[in-house]
Amino acid sequence: MEHLLGLLRVHIHKGVNLAVRDVTTSDPYVIIRMGKQKLKTRVVKNNINPVWDEDLTLSVLEPLPVKLEVYDKDTFSMDDKMGDAEFDIKPFMEAVRMRLENLPNETIITTVKPTRTNHLAEESHINWTNGKVVQNMVLRLQNVECGEIEVQLSWVDIPGSRGL
């Protein structure tokens, strides 16, 4: 049996300038996947700049990439895809592994630069915030004409799990 390393909390903050899939707007929601896990936010009606402000929590057995997909909810037809992105949690997990303590709030531990392979729209900082490691990311959606999703990662240690 695989050992649980801990939980990755993915805070789906908001979408910015998402694609229009209905006549003038969209009803977007986000699905995240890691391995066999699949989680979904609620639908925000008639909004191409939706604020979900939702936490989705994935169990991490190994540092697999997280896939994020945005869809437009349709009542009478298949939901339309509004782009996707993928992010690597390895840099974040390496920062968690450092077991840092007592740093000044908002200390930057690591900066992840945008590359062709990571879908970041801008530099992503892994910070020490309120006593824990968090990573804020702006992901540029792929396979779509426009749109970005803002997410924040944080780590939840589980008592009795192997830990990092």
Rank of each mutant, 00 (worst) to 15 (best):
H3S: 02
L4G: 04
G6C: 03
L7P: 02
L8H: 00
H11Q: 13
H13L: 11
H13F: 04
K14F: 12
G15H: 07
V20I: 15
T24M: 04
S26G: 07
S26K: 10
D27M: 13
V30D: 04
I32G: 10
K40G: 00
T41K: 03
V44I: 05
V44S: 06
I48E: 08
P50E: 13
V51E: 12
W52V: 15
L58H: 05
S59I: 05
S59H: 14
E62R: 08
P63Q: 12
P65N: 08
V66F: 06
Y71S: 03
D72H: 10
T75W: 14
S77C: 02
S77M: 03
M78D: 06
D80V: 15
F87Y: 11
I89R: 11
K90S: 14
E94Y: 12
A95N: 06
L100W: 03
L103G: 06
I108S: 08
I109F: 09
I109G: 12
V112Q: 11
N118S: 08
N118Y: 03
L120H: 05
E122C: 05
S124K: 12
V133A: 04
V133D: 02
L139I: 03
L141T: 12
Q142V: 14
E148S: 04
E150C: 06
S154G: 09
W155F: 10
V156H: 04
D157W: 01
I158M: 13
I158P: 10
G160V: 07
S161A: 15
L164E: 15
